[in-house]
Design a binder for these strands. Sequence first.
RNA 1: GGCCUGUUGGAGAAGCGGCUUAACUCAUAUCCCUUUCAAGGAUACAUUCAUGGGUUCGAAUCCCGUACAGGUCACCA
Length: 552
Amino acid sequence: MATNEDLANLLFPEVTETIDDLEKRFPERHLPEGAQVTRFAPSPTGFLHTGSLFTAFIARTVAKQSGGVYFFRLEDTDTKRTIAGSADDLIGQLAQFGIVADEGYFPDGDKGAYGPYQQSKRASIYKVVIKELIKQGKAYPDFMTAEELAALRKFQEENKILPGYYGPYARDRRLTVNEAIEKIKAGTPWVIRYRSQGDHDKKIKFTDRIRGTIEIADNDVDIVILKGDGLPTYHFAHVVDDHFMRTTIVTRGEEWIPSTPIHLQLFRDLGWKAPKYAHLPVIMKLDHGNKRKLSKRKDPEAAVSYLLKIGYPPQAILVYLMSIANSNFEEWTLSNHSFDVDKFPFSFSKMSLDGALFDEGKLNWFSKETMALIPTKDLVPEVTKWAKENDAALMAKIEADPAYFSRILGIERDRPNPRKDYARYQDIEPAIRFFYEEDYAKIVANGLPFNPRYSASFLEKFLGDMAEKMRYGVSESEWWNSVKEVASQDGFAVSNKDYKANPSAYQGSVSDAAELIRIALTGSKDSPNLHEIIEILGEKRVKERLHAVANH
RNA sequence: GGCCUGUUGGAGAAGCGGCUUAACUCAUAUCCCUUUCAAGGAUACAUUCAUGGGUUCGAAUCCCGUACAGGUCACCA
């Protein structure tokens, strides 16, 4: 009479290690009281989703703020869906946000003592546990084909029975060891299923760090733990990995709540202490009045790469995500005059339970605010780095004269109330075109939006006078006084009050005079501070532009 | 369909039985400041907390039903 041990040895003859050996190989971590071990464990199946960034960010924050460890694990057990190179892309993008793991999988090799950190390289570890489970009769080989499984499912659905491989429908759980051995020897393909002792009619309770107590029916499905390709399923890999990697808090999407009983059951039966769980809300989007999950296919903003490409500073995105994570973060920024997400005390209990809507308007606001606080000397390299990859027109301008570009970007910045007109780096180039002669020529060629009340001959005189008589290289107030003087000589009121008191006596107010200069120099009625523009362009070019427009 | 989770303004939300005339932030509107714009300042914006019922002297807050939304029921994670 064959035993479970015989079965285990037949299935995994190469496995000689025991669970105890693994416990020694991956000892408990010695961390200070309260330190948390967290992780981000994505599948390399595509681009970095905004929701994944959120999850990774939270995991990193919790570890960092508690003085613990944040590691990165690659969950690449689904070989069919794996996209080559996406793991390294993921890590590269995370790095742009400063989210770099303390240990884990890295493109140039693992770092840390609890590896390998790539599930496809941990097959031997999973098999040690599975072999032991089989010896104990807690797991068994299943020989059902895909067709048989489909037929079972169809039957259950037609008869309104709860679908799944459980209890009476778990055909091969009742196979004797001898029968199983026979089938294996005959070369019948198999998978390993876990023999669930759970009772679906009983509820199990667990505490979620965000949601509090959750009560769900216990799992009674004999889930597959080892697939036909020799790799584990998510459920099993999660339990084994987070045990041996000594994770203390599992942060993952709320879509995992329903399968948590499976995980808890596995932990319990294996005699392991389960980690704490925090199921994060999903980021949503408003679509025709309905809330729905941010979709990779429909929403460009679902891809972190898109957000980066249009030029949101990574820091701004993180600030926005933190405001979704903990709404008291906003008040904190106000009272602390800081957007430093690392200094803000993040807490799971302050987290909202339902998925926040991705709000581009608010992201823009945070982005303007955070960008305004970055000193120009630090912003320039950031913008340059971005432009190099994403904005050829901007890059050409920067390369033509970096110092000139710095002065332009620095207009009305580096002061207590800095300019806040860029939310994204891609907004910069269109706004500064007029500083460059080639673009300026195009703007002029397209026609200048002068008020039609001013005749060509008047414009010629006024702009010509202005070019010659306004003062250059002086303080803003001295310059402005000279402008007022010239304007006054040409028939403008020196103050809006004077003009309003008697409009017909003047050509307009100083505002109108300033507008004419502004249009002539920039091609637009709206621009940043005129004085700074004039100083940056320099006397020579200001005169050239003014005369050219005047004589047009 | 079963199960799970959720539902406070256009958005993020605070509130957790009386101290709420429902905080704060974004958006929007109006006004102020201003040589334009970006800002900045001020004001307005939920007679009401999905809905119906109940408990209570008193409910957004507790209980039950209903509706709606999201999630989940794979050899995918």
